[in-house]
């Protein structure tokens, strides 16, 4: 059982500002069902540009709900300029601290706030910077490096606590360690050189990887994938079953399929969807 502070428990048991705001000025959505937590933050401004009302809907654990509730209390009455200065640490502090493993709940709050403000200002949502390292939760090397620097994280468990990165299958642990070594100036182990492959070898390896690594995962959610062609570094695939037309399919294609192929075949592959 987690050791939550009384304030976390109190905000979980009696969350403030639950619900949606119709015609909100700013809306920020983060997380997903697959990840196990998600938050939608709404705010409405008054005539002076201050946050008059804020509400949230959260799917997640006690600390996710408490962080969301805390966030709404913290931003009400603030201007957007004031609100955007709030950090995830401020949210954790407001709650009297969060367990290390649950810091990502406060990070999620901060991200939702940023997104809601960007939404109000009409800014396009920023695409994630860098290359995906943690495929399970779609976390990039840039994000990991930034978080390690900001919070002086020294273990993979800490990185997982803050970002979730590395908390799924665990395959990216070596990569996270390398980023940490790099940040703290320790020797970086040298990646083995990729072998040169013939085209046939490459196509076979792509097929094998799809069969072994990707299809079983898609089948679990009722989807499927089919290799159509390989042209140089372009891998053309068709999505089937529930994957076809699924709004998350593009994300899966890049974050899971492409990342997996890059990991196991060659690092320069680009996956493209061919529509039927």
């Amino acid at each position: 059982m987690w050791e939550y502070t009384d304030k976390v428990k109190e905000h979980f048991l009696n969350p403030r500002n639950v619900g949606a705001i119709e015609n909100a000025d700013g809306v920020g959505e983060v997380g997903s069902l697959a990840c196990g937590d998600a938050l939608t933050l709404y705010f409405k401004l008054d005539g002076d540009g201050r946050i008059q009302d804020a509400k949230f809907l959260t799917f997640g654990c006690a600390s996710a709900i408490a962080s969301s509730s805390a966030l709404t209390e913290m931003i009400i009455g603030k201007t957007l300029e004031e609100a955007e200065k709030i950090t995830n640490e401020d949210i954790a502090d407001f709650l009297g601290d969060l367990p290390k493993e649950k810091m990502h709940c406060s990070v999620m709050g901060k991200e939702a706030l940023d997104k809601a403000i960007a939404h109000y200002r009409g800014e396009a949502a920023r695409a994630p910077d860098g290359n995906i390292v943690c495929e399970c939760f779609g976390i990039t090397d840039r994000e990991i490096e930034k978080t390690i620097r900001e919070h002086r994280l020294t273990s993979i468990e800490d990185v997982t606590g803050y970002l979730k990165a590395g908390g799924g299958c665990g395959k990216c642990h070596d990569n996270i360690q390398q980023i940490m070594d790099h940040v703290f100036g320790q020797p970086v182990s040298i990646q083995p050189q990729a072998k040169k492959m013939t085209n046939i070898q490459k196509i076979r390896l792509i097929e094998e990887t799809l069969e072994r690594e990707i299809k079983p995962a898609l089948h679990q959610d009722g989807g499927d994938i089919e290799l159509v062609d390989v042209d140089g570094v372009r891998v053309m695939v068709k999505l089937r079953g529930t994957c076809a037309g699924c709004s998350a399919a593009q994300v899966t294609l890049k974050n899971v399929v492409e990342a997996k192929l890059r990991e196991l075949v060659t690092t320069d592959l680009v996956v493209e969807e061919v529509r039927a």
Partner: peptide, 10 residues
């Protein structure tokens, strides 16, 4: 659920 275990996967 994931959150109750050490891991983040259900």
């Amino acid at each position: 659920s994931a959150c109750t275990s050490g891991s983040l996967e259900p």
